[in-house]
């Protein structure tokens, strides 16, 4: 995660006790993190009446996949379809954002043109303004463009990522100017310097921003909830949130096993991807987190 700088050592006589206390606390915390997942999966493998048993069974008495089968066949709870929508939208948003943002970041970091600083200040100023203020006018625009219930409605408004521009510009600015000048002497054009020098050299920053943008898009609720209304067009967060209303009963659910099966099905792929790429993902959030939200 970080360099192998040596943290303070536990060398006291009480070190053993502290160490045991530390492990106990961390393991309790780990249980608090893991138990909700366990309970989600356990409930999803029960029948709905079993889910309401009192006292509850800590593991499903006769595990059943019936709710997963229901999800695969029923249209109003089409988790695979929602997952596909989420994936297409998140991938497209990430690609478009990285391309548009890195081009502009190179322009602002290295190229010269009239009003450059003025434009940059106006762009950066909008970082102070919460994004909810865009929502109503953007909704009306997207509606007038006929984009409601299309992927376009989610992808394009997310593409001008001001924070990403700011982040990449910082990285591009630290690239030694002498190397860029040497490339120019060798006859490289601006676009080649951007594509063959800036992009490869800063690929870690680009990957970090890419992961950040992808996860944001994948998990976003408010905007897709507004612009995607038909069942088959929903993303996972939207589909699940609507289920929460449709199957909600007070502070419980009318069909908890079905709801937990939908939740499990939408979070298990995330768990697998996270376990594979956890180092990259945590690094990405450390890098982008220090720079902004």
């Amino acid at each position: 995660m970080q360099g192998e700088a040596q943290p303070p050592r536990l060398t006291d006589t009480s070190a053993q006790i502290s160490r045991i206390a530390l492990y106990v606390l961390l393991i309790l915390l780990a249980i608090a993190i893991l138990f909700p997942f366990y309970w989600m999966v356990a409930t999803s493998l029960k029948t709905n009446p079993e889910a309401f048993y009192y006292p509850p069974d800590f593991y499903p008495p006769q595990p059943t996949l019936e709710h997963y089968e229901i999800i695969m066949t029923r249209d109003d709870i089409n988790v695979p379809r929602w997952g596909w929508n989420s994936l297409v939208i998140a991938v497209a948003t990430t690609v478009v954002t990285l391309f548009v943002t890195s081009l502009a970041a190179y322009g602002f970091a290295r190229l010269d043109f009239p009003f450059k600083n003025l434009i940059f200040i106006v762009v950066i100023f909008t970082l102070m303004i919460p994004s909810q203020i865009y929502m109503i006018p953007n909704y009306l625009l997207v509606r007038d463009l006929g984009w409601l219930d299309t992927y376009h409605a989610v992808i394009w408004p997310a593409a001008p990522n001001v924070f990403g521009l700011f982040l990449l510009r910082q990285f591009f600015s630290t690239f030694p100017r002498e190397l860029e000048e040497a490339a120019t002497v060798d006859g490289a054009s601006r676009i080649r310097i951007y594509w063959q020098l800036m992009i490869p050299v800063n690929r870690n920053a680009l990957i970090a921003l890419g992961i950040f943008v992808f996860l944001h898009s994948w998990n976003d609720l408010f905007w897709p909830l507004i612009v995607l209304s038909r069942v088959e067009n929903r993303t996972l967060p939207v589909g699940l949130a609507v289920l929460a209303g449709a199957y909600g009963a007070g502070d419980s659910f009318s069909e908890p096993a079905l709801i937990m099966a939908a939740s499990s099905m939408s979070s298990i792929p995330v768990l697998i991807v996270y376990v594979i790429f956890q180092r990259r993902i945590t690094q990405s959030f450390m890098l982008t987190g220090m720079g902004g939200r």
């Binding site: 909700p36 609720l221 996972l236 967060p237 929460a244 909600g248 502070d251 995330v270």
Partner: peptide
């Protein structure tokens, strides 16, 4: 890395 929707549904089921 989970969406608010998953967290919300699971917590609602746990805390009823």
């Amino acid at each position: 890395v989970l969406s608010a929707s998953v967290v919300g549904l699971v917590m609602r089921w746990l805390l009823g």
